[in-house]
Amino acid sequence: MAPTLLVQTISSVVAASTPLVFAGLGETLTEKAGVTNLSLDGTILLSAMTAFAVAYLSGSLLLGILAAMLVGALIALLVAWGSIALKQNQVAIGFVLTLLCADLSSFLGRPFVRIPGPSVPHLPIPGLVAIPVVGPILFNHNLLVYLSFALAIGVWLWIGHTRQGLVLRSVGERPESAYARGVNVHRTRYLYTLLGGALVGLAGATYSLSVKLGWSHRHTAGEGWIALAIVIFGGWSPWRVVLGAYFFGALKSLGSLMQPAFPDVPTQVFQAAPFALMIVVLVLASGDLKERLLALMHPRMRRLLSGMVRAGPPAALGKPFEPD
């Protein structure tokens, strides 16, 4: 039956997008504080490998997930320390860490390549799962997926509707004013970079323990860059970042669904599609094109839409802050 197939597909997209939700939200928190952690692609690889290896060796999923989050936070600490305390270029540190962690994951992960191992157990929520359509889409998953829902709501509330969120935004937008008001700018930046990094680590664990089980050479390569693009595409707004994560997750599932239907189209087209689309989406999100499209619209429509699609980066993103 077609409707059930559709529901199943959407449900699998929700599950497959979970790591991008974690990584996107983590990087949003970091960038809101004014720090870019460019190392995502490497961090996700190394934390995915760590999660699988630790869970496999210890027999504890929780230990694997915590180890991955610790790895993510430690890499983020290097980004924060190198750029805040040592004043080195954030992009340089992040890029070097991307390559370093990718190679490290290949080197240390070699004994774990393609061996069967633990995975997060499926856990439908009794009662809720019986709701038609919504039940199977939202409540027929595992704990990590439910955690991503909670986190999406939590980050949105935290950034937009709490005092601490206000402090966070002020540090990313106007660190001088925040400092004048008694906010410890550097401590706040360290804190959110570490927190963001831990969430990126959680994204890695979600790949190896839930979405793309196990470990292989360059298991998740490319995903981190997509996550970074989603943050820009989402205009640094948590709910739009989450939508972006599901959008790219859907695109990927669509690709693998359509592949058998179009045997003439080479598989490489489907592999490269997310990255080509990433560029297109960024052109739409950051270029003049958006403004031109908006200018074509009815003024009322324009006002309504521009609030939703216009969003720039935090004003002090990537800029060092010197209190004096």
Binding site: V91, G222, P266, Q268, Q271, A272, F275, A276, L282, G287
Partner: peptide, 22 residues
């Protein structure tokens, strides 16, 4: 397109790999 060159370049790296394989 006003897209940061990091993402433009990186996205095209993946496209070039796919093109080679194709």
């Amino acid at each position: 397109g006003k897209v940061n060159e990091i993402f433009a370049g990186l996205g095209l790296n993946y496209v070039s790999m796919a093109l080679t394989n194709y």
